[in-house]
Computed example of a mutant assay.
Amino acid sequence: MSNTEPAPVEMECRDQAVAVEDPGRPGVEVLTARDVPLGGPRAMRVRRTLPQRRRSLIGAWCFVDHYGPGDVGRTGGMDVAPHPHTGLQTVSWLFTGEIEHRDSLGAHAMVRPGELNLMTGGHGICHSEVSTPGTATLHGVQLWVALPDAYRHTARDFRHHAPAPVDLGGATARVFLGSLAGETSPVATFSPLLGAEITLTPHARVTVDVDQRFEHGILVDTGAVTAAGTELSTTELGYLGTGAAQLELANLTGEPARVLLLGGPPFGEEIIMWWNFVARSHEEIVAFRDAWQRASDQFGHVAGYAGTPERLPAPELPNARIKPRRNP
């Protein structure tokens, strides 16, 4: 998904992990989302919890957009024209609906509920995303992963994986990246990561073993839950620092509750994010934008997209450098 804000803020992001004082009962920082339109007169809106002023990254996860459930007849659904990416991977994960993906690698795939689509931008890629005509309700997340410096100019790539459900005793998990509850995704990443959907039965309470080296984010999609003893409502993202060996999740309601669990070791590198680019300097951002505006081969071409405009133009660059935004 593109960041379609007309005046995106340039952000220098630094991950400074918080270690828990008591691994037996770690504290959770609650992050709230802000609404962002995807563009157009009937703009579909998304809820963005990363990046924000209070926190820029959780592990290598640097961007979290959560949307729906939305009536496509009212919002117009998703129709994002070809747009570029550098220095990152995009993770598409749906709960309801279907999205058609096309990219300049030549990949043409459908994003469906419970199936991972992971695209590597690396040195440069462009892609389009359009909800299919049969989709009445659209509901899912779009996530970005920052690539470590050693791999951020890697070749473009695309992977698909449909993880099998794992019984947690009171909950079901689908592990799309990394390892959890004895299940490991076959999809390789450039830094250690965890990505899993967990659905809890009514009033269920489960405890899962997690990597103590990781910081974690718990995004509540439906229902109300507690994570490590802290209550989280729908659309909130709970941040848990490094040092915890287990994570307890509890469903506070009489209906199923669903969360996304994201994790990874503190990223340890400063990055600059602007529009759809992840870079290391202001000068790189300027060069990436110029290459996209010139239709450079760095990003390639998406075949088969029939919407308008044919490609998204880059926003204007800010007139001055933005002060760094750092994790607390």
Rank of each mutant, 00 (worst) to 15 (best):
S2I: 09
N3V: 03
E5M: 04
P6N: 10
E12P: 02
R14D: 02
D15F: 07
V18F: 15
E21Q: 13
D22F: 03
P23H: 06
G24A: 08
P26A: 06
L31H: 01
R45S: 07
R47E: 02
Q52R: 08
R54I: 04
L57A: 05
I58L: 14
P69C: 09
G70H: 01
T75H: 15
G77N: 12
M78T: 02
H85W: 08
T86H: 06
T86E: 02
L88C: 04
T90P: 15
V91H: 07
W93P: 00
F95V: 10
E100A: 02
G106R: 08
H108R: 09
V111R: 05
R112M: 03
G114Q: 09
L118K: 08
L118R: 14
C126I: 03
C126L: 04
E129N: 13
S131A: 13
S131M: 11
G134Y: 10
H139A: 09
Q142T: 05
P148C: 05
D149W: 13
D149R: 14
A150Q: 10
Y151H: 11
R152W: 11
H153V: 01
A155M: 03
R159L: 00
H160L: 07
P165G: 02
A173V: 03
A173P: 05
V175F: 04
L177P: 06
L177M: 14
L177V: 08
L180N: 06
L180H: 07
G182Q: 12
G182Y: 13
E183Y: 14
T184C: 12
F190C: 03
F190G: 01
A196T: 03
A196L: 13
T199Y: 03
T201S: 15
H203A: 13
V208R: 05
E215G: 07
T222K: 05
T226P: 07
A227E: 00
A227S: 04
E231N: 04
E236L: 06
E236Y: 12
L240F: 11
G241N: 03
G241T: 12
L249A: 04
L252S: 11
V259K: 10
G263K: 06
G264R: 10
G268S: 12
E269V: 04
E270K: 11
E270R: 15
W275C: 01
V278C: 14
A279H: 08
A279G: 15
S281A: 11
E284H: 11
V286A: 15
A287L: 12
F288D: 14
R289I: 14
A291E: 03
Q293F: 10
D297Q: 14
A306M: 03
P309V: 01
R321G: 06
R321L: 14
I322V: 13
